Simulated assay, not measured.
Amino acid sequence: MKEEALTSISDITHIEARLYLTRLHKKKYARRSVARKTSSLRSFFKFLIREEHLSVNPFTTVSLPKQEKRLPQFLYSEELEKLFAVSDLDTALGQRNQLLLEILYATGIRISECCQIQLQDIDFSLGTILVTGKGNKQRYVPFGSYAQEALEHYMENGRKELLAKGKQPNARTLFLNFRGDPLTPRGVRVVLNEMVKKTSSTLHISPHVLRHTFATHMLNEGADLRVVQELLGHSSLSSTQLYTHVTKDRLQQTYNQFHPRA
């Protein structure tokens, strides 16, 4: 407004709105950032109209930039094996870290969901965990034999040791930090970064990369898209369709199998 010599917000028209977006593009903002700013301003002017301060929304005719379609980052089996091999299973923190990795990869749950797991949410007989997701929606997710073995080891040894260091002797949270308090999402990120450093890898890994890896590996092995949607806790199938890409190995395997001159 200052650059265009506008003194009142009521002076803004669709022309100024487009000029604003042009400036954002010149400053090389990412499409996602431009879309977020545009959406925020559109909502703000909608609010002003509702409160009868304005009569026209200058951002109504401005279209959001088309989003870039990027393949989600995921790990190959070889990279996962390196991560699974770094934890010292003779220590309490090593047992916890191993379980953390196993659970995130075995279930594909979000980092926030992982940190909220309570002991009573785990059903060893069925091999499932009751997970509370976005909007307090609950779902059951299964975990495999590797995760169960790591879970039993941690529960019998490492967790008891960590719990003894805390001030809550009756705490029911599954994952604890070195002080015996509940592990936070930020703490999980630190743990994963340290594990990557031990593999001498240049990979950038986050809890969400393990979620991407879970979904990618499930679909590449032939899992039904609707089932993966349910396991991930997606309300929309379009969110799950992001993972319908295939790995280079699968592409090469399919090419060699079906191309006449492969």
Results as ranks from 00 to 15, higher is better:
Ala164Asn: 12
Leu71Ala: 06
Met1Tyr: 03
Ile109Met: 15
Arg139Phe: 06
Gln252Met: 09
Glu78Ser: 08
Thr22Asp: 15
Cys114Val: 11
Lys134Trp: 05
Tyr29Ile: 09
Arg211Lys: 03
Val86Gln: 13
Val196Arg: 03
Lys82Pro: 00
Ala85Gly: 11
Thr128Asn: 12
Tyr29Gly: 03
Met1Pro: 07
His212Asn: 10
Arg96Met: 04
Arg250Ile: 12
Leu162Trp: 01
Gly144Trp: 04
Lys160Phe: 06
Ser206Gln: 10
Pro182Glu: 05
Lys167Val: 10
Lys165Tyr: 13
His259Lys: 06
Ile122Asp: 09
Glu52Leu: 00
Leu176Tyr: 01
Asn97Ile: 04
Leu231Glu: 08
Pro72Ser: 01
Tyr105Met: 10
Thr7Met: 14
His153Met: 13
Leu174Thr: 02
Gly158Arg: 02
Arg23Ile: 10
His53Lys: 11
Leu151Gly: 03
Leu21Val: 12
Val190Asn: 09
Gln148Arg: 12
Asp11Trp: 01
Ile111Leu: 01
Thr244Asn: 05
Ile129Trp: 05
Pro260Gln: 00
Lys69Pro: 03
Val34Pro: 02
Ala17Asn: 10
Leu119Met: 14
Glu161His: 07
Leu237Tyr: 01
Arg18Thr: 06
Asp90Arg: 14
Ile117Arg: 04
Pro185Ser: 09
Leu21Glu: 06
Thr22His: 14
Phe45Ser: 07
Arg172Ile: 12
Met155Lys: 05
Lys82Ile: 01
Glu221Asp: 11
Gly187Asn: 07
Glu113His: 06
Thr184Glu: 06
Leu231His: 09
Arg96Lys: 03
Gln241Ile: 03
Ile205Leu: 15
His217Cys: 10
Arg50Pro: 00
Ala215Gly: 13
Phe258Glu: 03
Leu83His: 02
Lys28Ile: 08
Gln73Ile: 14
Arg189Phe: 11
Gly158Tyr: 06
Ser239Ala: 15
Pro182His: 01
His204Asn: 12
Lys69His: 14
Pro260Leu: 00
Val141His: 09
Pro142Lys: 01
Gly135Arg: 06
Leu151Thr: 04
Ser145Gly: 01
